[in-house]
Design a protein around this nucleic acid. Structure first.
Lengths: 203, 203
DNA sequence: TCACTTATATACCAGCCGTTATGGAAATCG
DNA sequence: CGATTTCCATAACGGCTGGTATATAAGTGA
């Protein structure tokens, strides 16, 4: 019996593309948040019926988590890549301009999926909130390690606190997300980024 | 017929204090957001029944707007007062430390009522979102005017953009709110504030 | 062709949502 | 006192929520 990784499934084949449906679901969660997105909203955007959704994705919570995976994989990858910049200033530039591009891209919903779903919610969505908060905590941790190294390498003046800098850059990103969600234009966000980089310590 | 401003009402007097009930409602909206707060949550926290709530406040939306009024009157007054500081740096200090105090006060729910309700929501809460966004826009406008004046008075170096600085300070506040909502400690927020002030332009 | 497996479509479920009608209790006015 | 006005408590409303049972359609392999 040989291993068959790409075997043809036995029963009736599904009539929709799982990846495309998930991408559509992501847009809905991104626009309305977990609680604001109803199953009716989701199925309509995904072009499938509720039983198909449940068969393919489990339930609303599992669907959200898969959408969150997709979001991190496709939309926030610039964050991980930014940490590879040779200098701390380079990291900040890549992070801020990357955020600027994402938040002002007309294809994307306004704001940040993570921020939207980490601020507040009813009781039943609390576990969703915790999951989102945990993910952004690991992202911030990676930033902290990068800036700690940067300080060791002499990227910062003596009086700069790497943890403070990481929190600062995180706050800038979150502020951009909130302002983008409130309808800020790309030009407005651009001024914010340029001001932030002008204030950035060192050369 | 004389004017009687403090006349005794005719029918049965109400058995609860409207102000205390509104304060309780504010706490619920502040913790869970407009959509996350159910009428059951509200009535339980306010200690009244639903008909009493509707008689005294109208409906959920009207109740939220009154809670938002109370929030601005009692919790964000430091913002208006901060603009009276003699220098731009003084304004920034008062704003950031005022935000720090509010976001780290154990009496208050975590985060900012405005940020919570301006990021995303379902269709029926869109008008709430717009109202909140409009209020924060006027707050930002006042900040912009203050920093424009500050630049004229020589508080900033030549290459500083008042609009950028206003957006920057707004972003810092929003970032603090998001991080506080995610469970940041007062010490963490303090480092963020100190870093922000260290980066502030000029003396 | 026939059994088997899986997906789809319709209709439905209990439970909660914001909101309100109804009936009785508590106050003032005449 | 009775009449009137206002408030409280119960219980219900239609509509929407996330989630599913049932029946049928569309593929596979024998």
């Amino acid at each position: 019996m040989e291993i068959d990784t790409a075997t043809v499934p036995k029963g009736r084949p599904r009539e929709f593309c799982v990846d495309a449906a998930l991408a559509a679901a992501l847009r809905v969660f991104w626009s309305k948040g977990y609680e604001g997105a109803s199953m009716a909203d989701l199925t309509e955007a995904m072009g499938i019926t509720k039983p198909s959704l449940y068969a393919a994705f489990g339930n609303k919570e599992a669907l959200f988590n898969k959408a969150l995976d997709l979001y991190e994989r496709e939309k926030t990858d610039y964050m991980r890549a930014a940490l590879d910049a040779p200098t701390a200033r380079g990291v900040a530039e890549r992070l801020m301009y990357g955020a600027l591009d994402m938040y002002s891209c007309p294809e994307n919903p306004n704001g940040c999926l993570g921020v939207i779903n980490s601020v507040a919610c009813g009781a039943e969505a609390e576990c969703i909130r915790e999951a989102v908060v945990a993910r952004s905590a690991t992202a911030k941790q990676a930033m902290l390690e990068r800036f700690t190294r940067a300080k060791d390498e002499g990227d910062f003046p003596e009086d700069v606190d790497p943890a403070g800098i990481a929190a600062f850059l995180t706050a800038m990103n979150q502020g951009m997300a909130v302002q983008a969600g409130a309808g800020a234009t790309r030009a407005e966000l651009e001024r914010l980024v340029e001001t932030g980089l002008k204030l950035w310590p060192g050369r």
